[in-house]
Amino acid sequence: MHIRLTLPFYIYPFHFFRGSKMVKIPKSHPRYWSLLYREKIIRGMEEGITAKAGLIAHGRGEAFDYLIGERTIPPAEEAMKVAVAKLLLANHPVISVNGNVAALVPRETVELAKVTRAKLEVNLFYRTEERVKKIAEVLKKTGAKEVLGLNPTKRIPGLESERGKVEEDGIWKADVVLVPLEDGDRTEALVRMGKFVITVDLNPLSRSARMANVTIVDNIIRAYPRMIELAKEMRDYSREELEEIVNNYDNNKILSEVLLHIRRRLEELAKEGIWRKEKI
């Protein structure tokens, strides 16, 4: 299955201001969408939303996106369906938001929370109160009525970093947590707490991917719009139908299928030749 990179919520800008200099990305550029989202991350850093380390993380994700073919593959589609089913079944679902998520998919994050009845909570490794407030403002500007994370009073056991700080009525109380673009140590700590953890991670070998209950190996710019579509389709399912979807899922099998997909794709590219002569 190939899911387009364009999203239905708004028309993307074609120009970015970096400081006082305008950066123009021509739509004819063969890497238009990749450059566009890269600029969103850079702009997020300049606006105090994304941490500098977020640029490195985004670049690493781009590399893995090349490996899977820059498209939504069947294992990711299956994982998304299970993730949505679990969010719809949850008593207290929460979607965690970091700087990269706020820079890349703020509107989609808010929409996904609405259709799954999930709460939003800002959670940052490089936490400052100013960054938390700015991310909350971005989410509210795109339609969020409530954003948690500004007044954490609890700490995830065994997690000493700033990511251990959570709100009692948010992640602390949650039974299902969606933690996209996540650090492995927090994923592991949340699972230890008995929470059902869903992650979106382009690296199938990361600790987050291996520790989560459901791992969506896809680019978040494709995953969130598709999850919104699925949630709208599945919210009328019976509880029994949703539970059957979740109970039949095997995350280890899904990760194995992703690795096999990458291997097959690399083998095909090696046989066909990755260099293609263009007509001049």
Rank of each mutant, 00 (worst) to 15 (best):
A113Y: 01
E268D: 14
V197Y: 04
R18C: 09
S208T: 11
L120F: 06
V110Y: 07
A223Q: 00
N219T: 06
I11P: 04
L7P: 00
G143H: 08
D236N: 14
H29Q: 04
M1E: 11
T199P: 09
L55S: 10
K277H: 13
Y237S: 12
A63W: 08
E78V: 08
I280V: 10
N91R: 15
R107F: 07
L7N: 12
V138S: 07
K24R: 13
E111A: 14
E39T: 00
G99F: 02
S28T: 14
E160M: 12
F9K: 03
L87D: 09
R60S: 10
H15L: 10
M234Q: 09
V258Y: 09
N248F: 02
L139C: 08
D250Q: 08
A189E: 02
R264N: 15
L230H: 07
I41H: 03
V132N: 08
W172L: 10
G273P: 11
V105Q: 04
V197R: 03
P8I: 03
G59N: 13
E62Y: 07
N100T: 09
L89M: 13
L88C: 07
H58E: 10
L260D: 15
I198F: 05
K279E: 14
K141G: 13
V214H: 00
V200A: 05
A83E: 07
F196E: 05
V217Q: 00
L87F: 08
V177E: 05
E108D: 12
R71V: 11
Y126C: 02
R38E: 06
F9Y: 15
I262H: 10
